[in-house]
């Protein structure tokens, strides 16, 4: 069968809402687009561990500390699910992580903002995870099977993240003056970056149309953003916090995406440091595995 015929059949399967599985024929452009989107998503989870991880050692109560460790750990788990799903497309995780560390691959620019106060842990859960859920729920039905299945698992876990964030904000909003101020300042700082998470306006979104045709994306950036605002503003009112007025500064978005955000450098350096410092450990485990010895019997059943 020639390529044109294969492509026609492929698009017909997509149009019929069939799922594409790893060994199925797929257009190179579809494969490349998925690798790009899924690996960016995986990188975002991994880099996303850092801003909140910043507060693990200083969480103000032991219960909050436990919740935060579990939450940041989940982000790592989500990264693992997504790297695994991406690897079904014929790339290795090592190569993908290599692209992250050299700066060739992108990740969500939201994680290049700092978390100077405890309220930022609340704001990230409430707003950033809230926006992520809005983006991710449609992906549970995306055309590529492994991605859709990973997203189902992730979305199940993500709602705990948003709720714990809102719970932090609620406690702060009902707390002392200093705590309320902390909460308001955090909302002020995270509001615009959270809205930018939905991507550029529809008119400027270069990947959107094709992604929609392939059912990798099901709603437009602006549509999701509008829905997020609609849900979130009443929540802010409930908290007694004021949502910033104005419009999105897209030049800031471009600049942060290009590596000029407040924390781009620290985030990548932290990832590189961990990768480099762990090399001898990964090598040791491989060397140990390669040595001949009687097989350790593990029970199965």
């Amino acid at each position: 069968m020639d390529i044109a015929a294969l492509e026609t059949r492929f698009q017909a399967r997509i149009d019929a809402d069939e799922r594409i599985e790893p060994k199925d024929w797929m257009p190179d452009a579809y494969r490349r687009a998925l690798i790009r989107q899924m690996s960016q998503h995986a990188h975002s989870e991994i880099v996303g561990m850092l801003p909140e991880g910043n507060w693990i050692t200083r969480a103000p109560s032991l219960e909050r500390k436990a919740i935060l460790i579990a939450k940041v750990q989940d982000e790592g788990g989500h990264g693992a699910y997504l790297y695994g799903a991406t690897e079904t497309l014929g790339v290795t995780r090592e190569a993908l992580i290599g692209e992250l560390l050299t700066g060739a691959a992108k990740y969500s620019s939201i994680f290049n903002y700092p978390t100077p106060t405890w309220a930022d842990v609340g704001a990230i859960g409430w707003l950033v995870d809230g926006a992520a859920i809005m983006n991710q729920i449609p992906l549970c039905r995306c055309s590529y099977g492994p991605y859709a299945r990973a997203m189902v698992r992730i979305c199940k876990e993500e709602s705990f993240h948003q709720r714990q964030g809102f719970d932090i904000m609620l406690t702060l909003a009902r707390g002392t003056d200093a705590q309320r101020r902390m909460a308001q300042e955090s909302l002020d700082r995270w509001w615009w970056p959270a809205l930018m998470m939905f991507g550029p306006p529809d008119a400027d979104s270069k990947h959107s149309a094709q992604s929609m045709r392939w059912k990798v994306k099901r709603f437009s950036n602006d549509e999701l953003r509008r829905r997020f605002i609609e849900f979130t503003v009443p929540q802010a009112e409930f908290l007694g916090l004021v949502v910033p007025q104005g419009t999105i500064d897209w030049s800031e978005f471009e600049s942060v995406l290009k590596g000029n955000g407040p924390c781009n450098r620290e985030r990548l350096e932290a990832r590189r440091r961990a990768h480099d410092a762990g090399r001898w450990v990964r090598e040791a485990a491989l060397a140990y595995a390669a040595k001949p010895r009687p097989v350790r019997q593990e029970a199965t059943g």
């Binding site: 579990a70 750990q73 989940d74 788990g77 693992a80 699910y81 695994g84 799903a85 690897e87 079904t88 995780r93 299945r149 990973a150 698992r153 876990e157 990964r282 485990a285 491989l286 140990y288 595995a289 097989v295 350790r296 593990e298």
Partner: peptide, 24 residues
């Protein structure tokens, strides 16, 4: 089948599976 992971040996793979896929 729930997904995949990386591990240097079988014992580590079981432990990683436990940590990555059975947290709940």
């Amino acid at each position: 089948h729930v997904g995949s992971l990386h591990a240097a040996d079988a014992r580590m793979a079981l432990e990683h599976a436990r940590d990555v896929y059975t947290r709940r």
